[in-house]
């Protein structure tokens, strides 16, 4: 908890305590942990002297700011049409079978979360996905299995 208090203070010192400092601060928190806890949002609200509901409203608007518990590695597979046409569905099934979770879920060891995302701009190398900030493209069931196995070793 104290760590979090200090982190929020540090981020506020860095980005300022105005209303428009909110998003950079939340992004800073996202870098530390893959999701925003309610405690963290209350701390941010206190630091900026705004309501916690306001912080939650802002955070929940952005797809890449999670307010639900997420694993260490967040997989976001593209759900738009180019990727679907290039065999995304088989890739998705492979991920689900390998990790034993469905879209929206997190593994019990809190290592992986599986989500869908709108277009991430890799249509020319579809199907594509992100693991945290790293894109993986031209996926096949075999390729995605290998990628996941590498992450499982980490």
């Amino acid at each position: 908890m104290l760590e979090q208090v200090n982190l929020v203070k540090e981020l506020a010192d860095k980005h300022g305590r105005r209303r428009d400092s909110l998003i950079p601060i939340l992004q800073g928190l996202m870098e530390e942990k893959n999701y925003l806890t309610d405690e963290a949002m209350v701390l941010v609200a206190k630091e900026l002297d705004i309501s916690a509901a306001d912080v939650y409203g802002t955070a929940s608007f952005y797809t890449f700011m999670d307010t639900d518990v997420r694993g260490k590695y967040v997989i976001r597979i593209c759900k738009t049409i180019s990727c679907s046409m290039k065999g995304k569905i088989d890739v998705l099934h492979t991920i689900e079978e390998t990790l034993k979770i469905k879209v929206g879920e997190t593994t019990s060891d809190k290592k992986f979360s599986l989500l869908e995302t709108n277009c991430i701009g890799w249509c020319h190398k579809a199907p594509a996905m992100l693991i945290n900030d790293t894109p993986y493209t031209e996926l096949t069931p075999q390729k995605v299995t290998e990628i996941l196995q590498e992450y499982m070793k980490l």
């Binding site: 509901a53 306001d54 939650y56 409203g57 608007f61």
Partner: peptide, 10 residues
């Protein structure tokens, strides 16, 4: 100035 309610999600 309470902001108990907000617009969440989109």
């Amino acid at each position: 100035g309470v902001n108990a309610l907000t617009v969440a999600n989109k």
